[in-house]
Design a protein around this nucleic acid. Sequence first.
RNA 1: GGGGAUUUAGCUCAGUUGGCUAGAGCGUACGAUUCACAUUCGUAAGGUCACAGGUUCAAGCCCUGUAAUCCCCACCA
Length: 948
Amino acid sequence: MKFSSSYEPNQFEPDIYAAWEAAGVFNPTVSTVPVDADGNGHDDRLESEENAFSEHVWRRAKHGASEPRNDGSELAFRKSISSDSTYSIVMPPPNANGNLHIGHGLTVALEDSLTRYYRLKGKSTWYIPGADHAGFETWVVYERALEASGHTRFEYDRNELYARVWDFVAQQRGNMEVQLRALGASCAWNDLTFTLDENVVDRVYTTFEKMWNDGLIYRGKKLVNYCPKHQTAFADIEVEHQDEPGTLWDIAYDDIIVSTTRPETLFGDVAVAVNPNDNRYQDRIGKKVHLPLTDREIEIIADEHADPEYGTGAVKITPAHDFDDFEVGERHHLPQIQVISEEGRMINVPDKYYGLTTAECRKQVLKDLKEQGLLKGEKKITHSVAHCYKCGTVIEPMLKEQWFIDVKTLAKTAIEHLNNNEIKFYPESKQKVLINYLENLKDWNISRQIPWGIAIPMFKKIDDEATDEPEWIFDKRTNLKEIEKSGVKYIRDEDTFDTWFSSSHWPIVCTDWSDENPTPYYPLNVMETGVDLIFAWVSRMIMMGLYVTGEVPFKEVYFHGLVLDEHGKKMSKSKGNVINPMELVVKYGSDAFRLGILRGRSAGMNQAFSENSVISGRNLANKLWNISRLVQSMVDEDGEADASFHFASPSENREVESSRVPESTGRRPDSTTRFLPGAQQSASERSLSIYTTDNMGEDWICREINDCLDQVENDMKTYRFAEAVEVLYTTIWDKYADWFLESQKLYKNVPLLKTTLESLLIAIHPFAPFVTEAIWQNLSWTKGFIITAKWPERLEYDPISAENFENIRIIVSEIRSTLQSLPGANNSKKYGLMYDNDALVEDNSLLIKTLAKVPTINPLNGSPRGLRIALASHELYLDVPEKVIKDYKDALTEKILSVGRELDALNLRMSNPNYVERAPEHLVKETRNQIKEKESLISRLKNQLTLT
RNA sequence: GGGGAUUUAGCUCAGUUGGCUAGAGCGUACGAUUCACAUUCGUAAGGUCACAGGUUCAAGCCCUGUAAUCCCCACCA
């Protein structure tokens, strides 16, 4: 016996993954094969193939494209296949030097389930892994390490820093790839794309050049979100707003009082704005006031920006340090006076304040204003303050020259395609959200003052440095600091791209799309990612995909929400409620984790997660293991004798009337041989194509498995992972194990046992890849890998026989329930069952006897006696003594009342003439039948009540 | 201010185009036990589907309103 009594994931998972990887089954070239097409025998496949976790990504990233991703035949295949036969999906690249967190665990569970499902369905399936250089994230970590060692970034130039971070990341590279393997991700490792790979950089430069030529890129001196700590600018979406208490000060500018939360910026004031409709200030518009603490005068202007309701209705205008004021300044052609440096210190201010930090300066300004009697009031307020999302430093709006993308046409095109429903969203509502976002999108600042990233390929004419509008040229030679073109020298812009600019090309670069060589794997079938990335990433991939390829980059988007802790709270280090997916994988197995995290999860929702769900997944894996163990043992027994004589043992049969032996096993005389659909050509390939069905639940389980497959297929089409897992769970556990296998202990239909087990194993493989493969490799008759098996065909069955078994289930359940509710100690509840005029019960007496655990089952000879089972269409009696029936009276009364309540509801429905008239006929008919049934049941139960 | 969600059993969640007595897992209670599995088996309790109206023969589902909770965007001198 190869099977131990419980499934131990750790014994199998690493070897199985290594065997898959060694066999190359993750490549898109591999499609499904008939289960026994591989003649090599299967066990040796799992033997110690060298498990070489690839250093591929790093080698390739460092050495550039010199190392081809795949050999020629693989690449030729990829170009030749029709796009109808492909299924492509990319992994949102985890940080190359980080560890996977619970969100990655969910992502992999979702994406890999899809991948495996479509692989089983026969698609050329390509799940492309990635690794992210994580520009800013990694930079922050590196800079912290640098500071800890007593150095600063300013000791090195950009190229040195880039090289140092590269080495730092190489050393610090975490276990990300190992962890993805542990989760079972069946991704094509040879195609792993690193965000700094040469082909990525090249594609990004090509796009940038095209945009530059199309006039979509411009260099603008605008206010940007600037973190004085990290000394870099951010895009709007990288800034976190928080409501905080603050103070609103009233300051007298002559006789006009302005209100401000930032008095230190008054040195940058260039005007005071009032609302054009504000009666209080009509006569002052165009006049001048004296700017306190200086010898300047500034004009009073009229602008809608000033809200008459807020403060005094007069607002100071500081274009260089406030986003709204910047716009006001543009409208009125006002100068921009920068008074805060990039280091966060005061500049262009009277000597007294020069060099102070903003906080020091504020204190001093307030003190001086107070002394001069110009501080007219202060009020505590709550206002939202922008922070650096990484270090929490307050964001300083800073006037900087940066590269911007004019997003108008990009957004417009994207909106058109979205309105055209070219991308299907899960959840649906996100489509609107995205369109709404794109409609209000502002120009995108793509410059970052961080060395770790893709260098911006723009060079400035050296001798133009002094002019206001220097000449910029595009050039890809960013490895050089200086270049020469036509005798003119140019110097490189030191900035790097916003990572989202390169990430927006992800579907394009991962699939190796190019103008000359479009690929059948683009657009992707689906983009699966976190809902938090809808704006930062998804919106930009759509814009960029359309700009570069003219097509949307993916046909569907599935958003997952946050994984919350078991109480529905966000996980955070400070709360100490962070769940590490790897701990759960080690403790319960990868399958358990995957099943657990998919349970109760639906698109776009932030949902709770707890270890319990993983335990439940572990139990299912173990159940599958033991089911297979039982089936294998039945198959083994079968090998020793002719299957057609596997009736229950003679001694057992003798307990029933001897003349009824054949019927009592539930074997139908007319049992028929059934073929799988399409069996003609595959019968020789699939050893299990032929089976017969009998009663004993055999037709029934075929029906249930077919229904289950229908539902799983439907659920996968609509990304309802939790439902797919649920229906598999129920079918395998509650139906296959609890009813079908129990009944098969009486009569073993070995071909059917094999076929049904295979179907269920394959169907749940996408969600529990390891245990199903472990079983597959241990079953005596299966061949090859389950990962490349073929999705199950529907099973043929006799519907009447299936329905008969359904009736038997109802009968057995009712007997069990009645027995449980009988008074008295349990070991005394062994009562025989009697039936009257009931062919179904008679024909399946052994089955019912076994499943209901009654000692005997006999026809009722003579008048009814004992305790009637509460079934309308079957006359069954438990042979219990008078006394027990008397004690059971209360329960019986309650039963009658409860059926009576149901009957009342039905009668009420029928008494409504509109119902009879307007409801569909079949419903009305059904109601009538139910009334009849319940009435007869009540009268029989009542009869029994009076008898006792 | 704009947008998007959520509210169903003690907990976490399903419930698709309205249709029969609203489901699951976990938890709880009671019972079982050599023969695949205690990571097991059986049985049961547990619901005013947030609230108020409306449409309909019929509403957890559709419509209107209210309340609570959450997320995103913008703004806050």
